[in-house]
């Protein structure tokens, strides 16, 4: 009877937290109760950068993380953080469910973790306190808080905005007082962080669809029998379907919640945003293997 500890930065009830719990239940059934999973939600064991390291040390068994937290450590995964690499949720799913998804999962081996499955993280869009964003011109001079990630910073710069560093906990009061104009995130985070209260304009430019990934420590993985490894992979794959249901439900719920708070949501013509991404692709897609990967993703149906 082994209890595996897993970390998640999101609160209890969030689709990723529930998905890992579902993974644990499936795993427990498949292994006749030999393995179960306990989720430490709400970043109790540290922020994602810390918990990735802890998974590498082997002090944490499992981890559900945003691929963005790996930065550029896994070049194949970096490709999925490129703005507009995915055309739609369907395209996102068909790429990650197919051979390209397997290829990217396998690439995590070189950072001492074994990646088991991709989860949905939704589409990220800009929100701000001033006006609806309809074209890159509306972003000119706008102070937008982004995560500490080179791609995010370069993306905002390419659109003409002012990418502004700020700790996540200060974003609410930052927007309220006007230190920054806004930030960017998916529906659920826009809702749960309360940012919809102060930044009323949510513009669906959907610049990023960054996958979430479930990883297991290499230390733990190497201690499993080959039969159990198969069961772990099966359980992870099966939990993906559940996570997508949870995610879809959460998005609907969050959208309703932010609308109730008075948020104005506008559709955006993405063409000029996509056209502005040239420099970002030039900077991050340099070697031939990555260029090939990008081309194959873009050629995937969906």
């Amino acid at each position: 009877q082994t209890v595996l500890r897993s970390s998640d930065t999101h609160p209890d009830g969030y689709p990723t937290v529930e998905a890992v719990k579902a993974f644990g239940a499936l795993l427990s059934t498949k292994t006749d109760g030999r393995y179960s999973v306990e989720v430490f939600h709400s970043a109790q064991l540290g922020e994602e950068k810390d918990t990735i390291e802890q998974t590498q040390f082997g002090v944490l068994d499992l981890n559900r993380i945003s691929i963005g937290a790996f930065g550029t450590q896994v070049p194949e995964a970096t490709v999925t953080q490129l703005p507009y690499i995915f055309r739609s949720a369907d395209h996102f799913h068909s790429v990650l469910d197919g051979p390209i998804g397997e290829e990217i999962l396998a690439a995590f081996d070189k950072v001492d973790v074994v990646a088991l499955a991709f989860y949905d993280g939704g589409a990220r869009s800009f929100y701000n306190s001033g006006k609806p964003i309809n074209s890159p011109a509306d972003l000119a001079g706008m102070k937008l808080r982004v995560m500490q990630s080179d791609i995010f910073v370069d993306m905002v710069a390419a659109l003409g905005g002012n990418a502004t560093p700020m700790p996540y906990g200060e974003v609410y009061s930052g927007i309220q007082t006007g230190v920054i104009d806004g930030a960017e995130n998916n529906y659920p985070s826009y809702d749960t962080a309360g940012h919809a209260e102060v930044a009323k304009f949510y513009s669906l430019d959907e610049h990023l669809m960054v996958p979430e990934v479930l990883v297991i420590s290499k230390v733990v993985w190497d201690g499993l029998t080959p039969e159990d490894q198969v069961l772990f992979r099966e359980a992870a794959k099966e939990s993906v379907a559940k996570q997508r249901e949870f995610w879809a439900a959460k998005e609907v719920q969050s959208k309703a919640a932010v609308e109730a708070l008075g948020a104005t949501i506008n559709e955006v013509d993405k063409k000029p945003f996509i056209d502005a991404m040239g420099p970002v692709y030039e900077k991050y897609v340099t070697d031939p293997a990555l260029k090939d990967l990008v081309a194959r993703i873009q050629a995937t149906e969906g």
Binding site: G46, E47, K49, D50, E53, Q54, F57, V59, P167, G169
Partner: peptide, 18 residues
């Protein structure tokens, strides 16, 4: 469990902008 986590946290405990 690996004791290295104690020293990782010693560092990340003081690595916040606030």
């Amino acid at each position: 469990r690996p004791a290295i986590v104690v020293f990782q946290q010693l560092n990340s405990g003081v690595s916040a902008f606030s």
